[in-house]
Nucleic acid binder design. Structure first.
Length: 270
DNA sequence: ACTATTTCCTGGATGC
DNA sequence: TGCATCCAGGAAATAG
């Protein structure tokens, strides 16, 4: 499931392959769920535009679209991959995968294909796209600590709240809390300054390491080249229910918090 | 202004 | 083997 490190990896891969290319035409499938903007608006905004840049914002992929010969982007194509979404660069002769919801033909002859079996992903267009929340790799420690002050919700839920931090999902929330030694059910406001300091460092460390590893490949995540990441090999708690903690051998516990499976070591995390 | 719960989706795993 | 049921979860919608 693509979170910040996976989306960063994908956006970088896409930038290297389609930046500067021009969109010739757009095909959108029958299903309406994957579209957040009306289909004519998406097709109309994309067609004829040059892809000036591709970047990540939270868990979104942002394609900056410019009119030919104009340096400033006139619009953005926003892609959220949801859980099972993939954005692939394909040659036109490659067979169209099941659950392909959009095909964008490029002047270079290749195609951008959006494939998403579960249809939790979303496509939209925008002008001056913004999202709420802070980038976890850019926020200052002082502002990070302020985010959680006076919040009654479990720290795990607060980490997943995109209006606070954007880009942290279930895997990296669990991995960060383990490294910070904090139990996921703790009320956010109950964390001490020292625990918040450790959590700040842990979130940044985990995200940076995961980006360096090309993300975590669980379920069907692959990057723009169809390559898997390998950070899943370094997960210390996520997906390790019942297995021994790497530090103390205590079996890792799994509980459900706000409908999300949450993994932690009952001895190392307090 | 927050917080908690429900809903959307399909493929893979599980159970009988 | 076949069929039914459950589960994964990001974010929006709904309810409190």
């Amino acid at each position: 499931m693509p979170e910040l490190p996976e989306v960063e990896t994908i956006a970088r891969g896409l930038a290297g392959r389609v930046m500067g290319d021009v969109i010739e035409s757009v095909w959108l499938g029958e299903k309406r769920e994957p579209l957040k903007s009306p289909p004519q608006e998406i097709a109309g905004t994309l067609t004829g535009k040059r892809i000036a840049s591709v970047r990540r914002l939270g868990k979104h992929i942002v394609f900056d679209l410019a009119r030919d010969h104009e340096p400033r982007p006139a619009a953005q194509w926003i892609v959220h991959l949801g859980m099972t979404g993939q954005m692939l660069v394909s040659r036109p002769e490659v067979e169209i995968a099941k659950h392909t919801h959009a095909i964008v033909k490029l002047a270079s002859g290749r195609e951008l294909r959006f494939v998403d079996p579960r249809r939790f992903g979303r496509l939209s267009v925008a002008h001056g796209f913004e999202t709420s929340g802070s980038e976890p790799l850019e926020i200052s420690e002082e502002n990070f600590i302020k985010l959680f002050r006076a919040r009654k919700t479990p720290i795990k839920s607060a980490l997943l709240n995109q209006k606070l931090l954007r880009g942290v999902g279930n895997i990296y929330a669990d991995e960060s809390l383990y490294r910070a030694g904090v139990r996921p059910r703790r009320r956010a406001a109950s964390l001490t300054r020292d625990e918040l300091h450790k959590l700040y460092r842990a979130v940044q460390k985990v995200l940076k390491e995961a980006i360096a590893a090309g993300g975590s490949s669980v379920s069907d995540y692959v990057d723009a080249d169809g390559e898997e990441g390998f950070f899943q090999l370094r997960h210390r708690v996520y997906g390790r229910e019942g297995k021994p903690c790497y530090k103390c051998k205590t079996p890792i516990k799994r509980v459900v918090i706000a409908g999300r499976s949450s993994h932690y070591c009952p001895k190392c995390q307090r």
